[in-house]
C-alpha cells in the first residue's frame, strides 16, 4: 500500500485534492490524475474555463456537435451533482466512480433508477419510459408503430411493475434488474480499469509523490 504526500498546487488549483477524491472513490491517486487529463481535454474543447458544459459533454460523447439527445442530457444532469449547469472535476470523478467495475452494485442500481426517473418523482413511470423509447427510435432512425410501442410497454410493466400500480418503484427496479442483469451493463465502464495507460501523460503533471511503504 502506498503513502501519498500531496503537494497540490498549480495543476489542481481550484479543484478538489486528488488525494481526497481517491480516498472517497474506487480510484487511486494516479487514476484521479489520469482522469484529470481526460477532464482537461473535455472541459477545454469549446471554452477553456475548467468546467464541462452540456455542449462539451455532448461533443465528447458523440464526437460532433450533434443535436440534443435525451439520454446524454439526462447523464449530464446526473453528473451535475451541484445543479450548477456545468460539471466540475469532483462531480466528474465522483460520478464516474459509480461506473467503475469495482463500484457496489447497489450504487449502480440507484444511479440507473435515477437515470430513468426523468421527472425525479421517485418512480419510473410509463410515460417516461415511452418518452425514452421514442427518443431511442428517433436516434436510431428505427420506426415502430405506436401499437408496437404500447405492446413493449405492456410487457415491460407486466414484468417490472409487480404491484401493477402503473409505475416502477425503487424496490421493483431492484428486483427487475437483479433478474435482468444485462440492464446494468451500461453502468460499468471497463475503460476505468486502464485509465492510467489510456492517459499516461498524467505522470508529467503529477503533483503527488507516491512513497512506497
Amino acid at each position: 500500500m502506498g503513502c501519498f504526500h500531496s503537494k497540490v498546487g498549480r495543476q489542481f488549483s481550484g479543484h478538489e485534492d486528488p488525494v481526497i477524491l481517491a480516498s472517497q472513490t474506487a480510484f487511486s491517486v494516479s487514476e484521479v490524475e489520469a482522469l484529470y487529463e481526460l477532464y482537461k481535454s473535455i472541459s477545454s474543447s469549446i471554452v477553456d474555463d475548467g468546467l464541462i458544459s452540456k455542449e462539451e459533454f455532448q461533443l465528447a460523447l458523440f464526437k460532433n456537435k450533434k443535436k440534443e439527445n435525451l439520454f446524454a442530457n439526462r447523464i449530464f444532469e446526473l453528473f451535475d451533482v451541484k445543479r450548477k449547469g456545468v460539471i466540475d472535476f469532483s462531480d466528474f470523478v465522483r460520478s464516474l466512480d459509480v461506473f467503475h467495475p469495482n463500484a457496489p452494485q447497489e450504487d449502480k442500481i440507484d444511479f440507473s433508477f435515477k437515470l430513468y426517473d426523468l421527472d425525479r418523482t421517485g418512480f419510473i413511470e410509463r410515460h417516461e419510459v415511452k418518452q425514452m423509447l421514442i427518443a431511442l427510435l428517433c436516434e436510431s432512425e428505427m420506426k415502430l408503430a405506436d401499437e408496437t410501442i404500447e405492446t413493449i410497454l405492456d410487457k415491460t410493466f407486466l414484468d417490472a411493475d409487480v404491484n401493477q400500480d402503473g409505475k416502477i418503484d425503487k424496490s421493483e427496479w431492484h428486483d427487475f434488474v437483479s433478474k435482468n442483469p444485462s440492464l446494468l451493463k451500461i453502468m460499468t465502464l471497463p475503460y476505468l480499469r486502464d485509465i492510467t495507460t489510456t492517459f499516461p501523460s498524467f505522470v508529467f503533471h503529477s503533483e503527488v509523490d507516491e512513497v512506497a511503504t
Partner: peptide
C-alpha cells in the same frame, strides 16, 4: 431479435447517449 420481444429498458440501453465509453476514445 424482434424489438417487440425485448423489454423497453433493453432497447433504451442501446442508446448511443448512454454509451459513456466514447468519452474515453481519443
Amino acid at each position: 431479435v424482434a424489438p417487440v420481444t425485448m423489454n423497453a429498458f433493453e432497447l433504451i440501453s442501446k442508446s448511443q447517449g448512454l454509451n459513456l465509453g466514447t468519452l474515453f476514445e481519443k
